[in-house]
Write a protein that binds this DNA or RNA. Structure first.
Lengths: 149, 149
DNA sequence: CTTCACCTTTGACTGAGTCAAGTCTGGCGG
DNA sequence: CCGCCAGACTTGACTCAGTCAAAGGTGAAG
């Protein structure tokens, strides 16, 4: 099969000590193909996938959440949860990007970190607080929604 | 500390065209006294307030949500919703601060915007997207939790 | 082939918030 | 002074996203 293009998720799973199961691969593939899906959307995408890999029966809801939790814990997936929206998932790429969220339609898009490498992690006034990660979200109106009004 | 007598929430409400009701004042007072309360915590604080203003019966759940929505819409209250937590409320002060959230205990504290006035709103690569607001959240471990481990 | 750890399913449950529809209230026009 | 009515509040059913607990499969190490 022409797997040349897509990443070898199986290997990534093994690396992190997780078993390489079809469900896990399928979830990673979905997240790679359509970033920012919710758990429900991922479930739907598993149900109606028409590609080579047989989906078998759908993954149960609990199963899906287990898979998502495992992948997030293993650092293969990142979960993003903008206010008012259920959690959304994207492949973890360690590229320090942030998110634009449209106030109208809720759509989300990536932006590279605006000010250089990891400026958001700059030391700040936080006596005793050990900062591990910064998360920046820009809220506004996307091009489509702006046009529509 | 004691902010020169509490702010005149009644007047603020009228200014924005909202009726000045005891419930609304009480919610604003609670948010002023203990920032970052959840809706449930605000409800509890209304129930057992021992100060001058009689609480009367508790505000119903729906009533509370109505009040919160109104106050947020009127720009008197700000709602913050870190991943994995229910919404939390603080008085809107237009001071462009951001939040530190502890991964262990979930506690939240304010930090003044690290890099000057509103750097987070700097133009960024977002063709067509009209950015209205930036939100920065730092995740880490607070002093207490760090000490406890 | 067995076994045990890991993976998955089932179904009940919770927490946070919403919807819809009815009731109360207080300030204004008459 | 009275009735009206918009805005404030209550009630109760409901939804959505996610969790818990316990039982059932499965596959690779031994």
């Amino acid at each position: 099969m022409d797997d040349s293009g897509r990443q070898d998720f199986g290997a990534r799973l093994r690396e992190r000590g997780l078993r390489n199961t079809p469900h896990r691969r399928a979830v990673l593939e979905a997240a790679g193909r359509w970033p920012h899906l919710t758990a429900a959307e991922i479930a739907a995408s598993l149900d109606d996938r028409g590609d080579g890999m047989r989906a078998g029966a759908g993954l149960s809801r609990q199963g899906l959440y287990n898979v998502l939790d495992d992948l997030v814990a293993a650092g293969l997936l990142r979960s993003v949860e903008p206010a008012g929206s259920p959690a959304r998932f994207e492949l973890e790429t360690d590229d320090n990007h942030h998110h634009l969220v449209c106030r109208e339609c809720g759509r989300m898009q990536d932006v590279p970190c605006a000010v250089g490498a990891a400026p958001c992690l700059d030391p700040l006034e936080a006596p005793g607080f050990r900062v591990e990660q910064a998360e920046v979200t820009w809220w506004g109106v996307c091009a489509e929604c702006a046009a529509a009004s």
